[in-house]
Amino acid sequence: MSPARLRVLGVERVGPYALLRLGRGPLDPGTPGQFFMLRPPGLVVPRPMSLCLAPPGELAFLVDPVGAGTRALAGLERGDGVHVVGPLGNGFRLDVQRPLLLGGGIGVAPFPFLSARLGRPPALLGFRTAQHAEAAALVPNAEVVLEPTLVTELLSPGFDVLACGPEPMLEAVGRLEPAAQLAWEAPMACGFGACYGCAVEIGGRLARLCVEGPVLGGRVRGQIPAMAGKVAAA
């Protein structure tokens, strides 16, 4: 389980995001929705990133440079090395009949890889600004909405929803489509169950998102303490 040192092939700007393209090395791309731990140079713990694209010989990650770790990753340059562990966690189930990808903001990250695996299903993506929405170009068959319009406003029944985005969006999707597969996010220091840092409420109890998720199907989670005791396993 040692980290692989992968070579940076390039960093491309996609709106405000950075598409970090790495040589695949010995790592398997895994299942869409699984994640990898990428160690930003100069920092102590790695950051969890879901795989965005898996072209032959490559692993690519869409990074939103919002903090010290993601800024350091977005600042990598061609030829740099980066330590990567993965794939980790549980990805999306792909045995779906009428898939619809529902994404918000940087939650679009796992969709290019997911879309390829599902045969380019329709996608509904919401962004804060037109600049952020440039990331929609990575996802085939995508319809885009900008704030204040929400993706949930355009959601019609009859789809197998696979969603990734901010927590309020996922909570809303979970209420509308209880069977939706939702990819959640939490701060993680390790990604393999060691640190207990990513505990979130799952089915009414605190559990490690890296072990039980990050994709939770048929189960609803909420924020502790506000949702404590109010959420039951579906």
Binding site: A186, P187, A189, C195, Y196, G197
Partner: peptide, 9 residues
């Protein structure tokens, strides 16, 4: 255990 958020670098 304690409520999240539990870790910060």
């Amino acid at each position: 255990g304690n409520a999240p958020v539990r870790i910060a670098e």
